[in-house]
Write a protein that binds this DNA or RNA. Structure first.
Lengths: 207, 207
DNA sequence: CCGAACTTTGTTCGAGCGAACAGAGTTCGT
DNA sequence: ACGAACTCTGTTCGCTCGAACAAAGTTCGG
């Protein structure tokens, strides 16, 4: 992408990997003494020199006179990340509070998701082809924000004790759900319509 | 989701927001003395107590006896995040090295993307309906990994000085590109076929 | 072969920083 | 009105940690 392609020494690469691993595993950067011990240096100065070298090559940034103050530049440029729990399916009874165990988690920056940290959201794995007319396929992952739907929104709704994706339609003051597939009938709610949220984003992984 | 719903005091929320903001802006956590100064406390102990309270409520974790060692639990559970540059379009001549300025950036965890830090990738905004048969719409964002395509892969290819998305097909030893839309003809390469990468993931934002 | 960059040693200094303790004012629910 | 939780003060102790300096061994390209 740019000038970061200045080559690193073997040792410098090792140090960088160590920094990254520590940050991932503990969330905190090692001090120069931590580095010294990990690499078996007899002096912190060795660690210091390497950090200085890495900083000169632009792969890290440092805040002078602050402890454990090594930063990766890419982390600074990054937007805020939000974590969305992924449910393979949502069982009945958990319509309001998602108290189930997630099947995993999806972490994306808020900007591409169109969400903020406050808005509750979850991800749902699509089953079946009932929304194929909206180009939503079996196996796709849909990010759903918990909020009131507007007409024509695609929503996650609780039907027969199972969450499915449908389009929310309002005709003559009567709300109902419509599949985007001629093979599926409209669904007029028997009693009440349990809408769990509104689709905001779609993610599809190809093999 | 779980017990993190223990309510925070106003002051505790302010402190948490401050921690988050500092981490975003500088990549480093504030020390107790930084907190003290920021809130105008006359003693660090106030900061200490609040940190302890936040830790007890589970919204932060701390590494005892380490400097600036406050961690957000969600950051620890999170998978590795990779940043993918987004290009609205890729002009000719930049087929190999993406030396253009990105129109933005997408940050997603590696697991969701199916990529690792090493593999080069970029994101592309889809224009037109030529892949509608594969349920890829105008306006979708496609993550493309730079690598050799296998037959039947969907690829980003350079055609007439512009990058487009097509299916890579191999028939009788002859490679060509096929749109997933009957209104578009097959594209047999005049001279050579410039494949920029293979589609790995699709992201669609709905209004 | 010579020098530049990389790598490591050994030591000292002083500010950074978490931790602890005793005490007290404030808010809020019951 | 009583207590619990929240909030803040003032101070001291001692490890943590970055920084600096002088020196030298190692690797490697030209």
């Amino acid at each position: 992408m740019f000038g970061s392609s200045i080559k690193l020494t073997d040792r410098q690469q090792q140090l960088l990997d160590y920094l990254r691993q520590q940050q991932r595993d503990f969330g905190v950067m090692p001090s120069t003494r931590d580095i010294q011990k990990h690499f078996g240096f007899s002096s912190q100065t060795a660690a210091m020199s390497h950090l200085r070298a890495l900083e000169k090559k632009g792969v890290i940034q440092r805040h002078p006179h602050k402890a454990r103050a090594v930063v990766f530049p890419e982390d600074l440029k990054r937007e805020e990340i939000v974590d969305v729990p992924l449910y393979g399916s949502i069982a009945a009874g958990y319509a309001e509070a998602q108290q189930q165990e997630p099947d995993g988690s999806i972490s994306v920056d808020a900007a591409t998701l169109g969400l903020n940290r406050n808005g509750k959201a979850f991800a749902l794995k699509v089953r079946g082809e009932s929304m194929i007319g909206a180009n939503i396929c079996h196996g796709d992952i849909v990010i759903v924000e918990v909020k009131e739907p507007r007409p024509r929104d695609i929503v996650a709704a609780l039907i027969d004790g199972e969450t499915t994706l449908k389009r929310f339609v309002l005709e003559n003051g009567q709300p109902f759900l419509r599949a985007e597939n001629p093979a599926f009938p409209d669904l007029v709610p028997a009693r009440e319509l349990v809408i769990q949220g509104v689709m905001k984003t779609l993610i599809r992984k190809v093999d």
